[in-house]
Design a protein around this nucleic acid. Sequence first.
RNA 1: GGGUGGUUAGCUCAGCUGGUAGAGCGCUACGUUUACACCGUAGAUGUCGCAGGUUCGAACCCUGCACCACCCACCA
Length: 735
Amino acid sequence: MKSMKINFGKMNFEDKAYNFKFFEEKILNFWLSNNFYSPEYKNDRKETFCITLPPPNANSPLHLGTMSGNTVQDILGRYNRMLGKKVLLVPGKDHAAIQTEVIFEKHLLKEGIRKRDLTREDFLSRCFDFCMTNANIARDQEKKIGLSADFTREKFTLDKSLTNVVYETFIQMYKDGLIHRDKRIINWCPRCETALSDIDTEYKEEKGILYYIKYGDLVIATTRPETKMADSAIAINPKDKRYKHLLGKTIHIESVEGERTLPVIADYLVDKDFGTGILKVTPGHSKDDFVIGERHNLPIISVIDMNGRSTFGKYKGMKIRKAREEIVKDLYKLDLIEKQEDIVHNVQVCERCKSTIEPLISYQWFLRTKDLAKKSIEKIELQEIKIYPQRQEKNLIRWLENIEDWCISRQQWWGQRIPIYYCGGKETIVDNNGDIQEKMLGCGEIIASITPPKTCPKCKSNKIIQDEDIFDTWFSSCQWPYTALGGVNSEDFKMFYPANVMETGRDILFFWVARMIILNIYKTENIPFRNVYLHGLILDREGKKQSKSRGNGIDPSSMIDQFGTDALRLALVSGIAPDQDTKLYNEKIQGFRNFINKIYNSSRFIFLQMQDLDEKDREFIRENTGKYCIKSKVNIQKELLDLKHMTHSNFKSFDIGITAHNLQNFYHHTYCDSYLEDAKNDKSIEAKAELIYTFYTLIKLMHPFVPFITELIFQNLKEENLIKTKEESIMYETV
RNA sequence: GGGUGGUUAGCUCAGCUGGUAGAGCGCUACGUUUACACCGUAGAUGUCGCAGGUUCGAACCCUGCACCACCCACCA
């Protein structure tokens, strides 16, 4: 691409206040209309620096947290570019499966359309358009904050090419025996008729009744008598001496479900202080019971269907509440209820419609992670991947050590549909014993394939049906480090993998970072990134989390309009420490705007000194490479050198907040308040040369943090023939 | 219940491996001087959460406690 000249014009010395709006727009156009953000701009550079930027969700505009992350990563990118490296920041947008589907459904509802009114294809195509609209807004925001990412390389996680890479990974895992299909308890919303991840549910305090039900000679307290026919054991706490004699025995009961024999087991999940200290274990309808059931190899019985109705005996077809009432009545009739108590307990509900979650059993796809996690732990312990702040390392390792198999299927539409095909299809049935089973309708062949097979390889039937489910969104986003680079065979992958930094929130250290390490080591036999930088949250003035419901969210674009991008960038990073929350509010950003204005005015002062110089003087100034003469109480030569060293060493340890703070402090108090004041006493040409030299040095050091105003000053120094440079932009100068 | 972080000037926070408490905002007074009132100069303001301990010496190290925030688990 041929570079284009933008005429910045001379700075307007009449304006005493920096007109950031005017200049920032010009500068941004200058950067964007040239090739500066591309690593190919300086193709001869050898050492690389790469960040595959965490893709924000394509379902809404960016919030401040993402922009703060962008700022940190851009600072690292710009700094490394100024160190002479070939820098690539890859932008992207994430399809964010479930979250997007929820948001888009709400969006549709405003138009009076329900999801079930649409076909799967229609829903997907509308949702795609919705995402593209938001992605465009988000991309503009990224540009506006000054993110020097190569936008020609932008990826969307649902792009066909990325999806195919994800499919390849899955199929490889399938062949390696890492994928299995198994029963699992899920959060089912009977009203929305969908499975929900824990994130899409919330807890609500609810009044309930605790029934003390007789089980033979024992009494068990429960709020859910309607699941008692799905019990497969009686459990006590191993430390509970009261019931020790029962261990290993079975108890015989006669109840509403008829005669049954249940084993007595011990599990530490049982709270001996709740109710009578005895728990009825119902693996089919309670998450904790499911865990206990797995541990003790208990049968799973289902008595509630996906419509939230009972499937058992005389209660069959009743809504759960109704079934509960009836069962309680029957239990009273049989004199099997000792007493009942009112209690207030937390109930898990659907975040959207607030109906009570029904934990149900269904078949899901799983990834075996234990062995993969071991390799990841090794790499972290060997410090091949470093975590900032370091204390999070042990959290990460502990999580990896205790990792469970990962359920990677979801019952939604918006996402990557699982590339598994069944000959003739399948259906899930509940047999008379309450057992959930998958019944194959064809010859039973299961085919993993990127493209739909035309016929069954075994029986040659042409009735091939794809699995209905999609992948967990994290299964795709955890492959981002190589999908962002175009897959493991691309030129970019060869040149830029592994990335140097992964910058993300500590809240997704496990969800994302840990699993990214796992999947990337599996796929590439190499780490995905060398450093992990965790950021904290951006809180409001009172230290509260910003949220839409609280209405305390800070609108990034209004901040930029009021105070300018450079000011916002400084406000977002100055004084921050990794994993540490930070507060943001108007007055704070205003303070940084004042500082930007200080930079502007000091440059005005310096340029005014240079106004009447002839070309010979200018040449003298240009040729000055660090001779000092101005008498000042500040030893500027030494101070500048110290500042440089400190900046470099702080960057090495990712102490960006400290660096920003130090640079600002130095510029304001040492450079302006002391040194510039003293410089006023020396009118010699040597003094002017020193002034330009020191100024130029500082502007470059500050550029990664406040890129706009420093570019403006650089262009004017060039325009005025006061510096010797071959570079078109300050971002390719050397620090 | 388990874990992590925080507690320093009215507010927001610095304070690196122990050696006389710092900056910005705010406040007070003064000031239009070769850039800047979105400014400068000068100033007031602190039992460094509480209680012990180590040390010649602790905001910093150790022990315990309190309060705040967050994370994980549990709520039959």
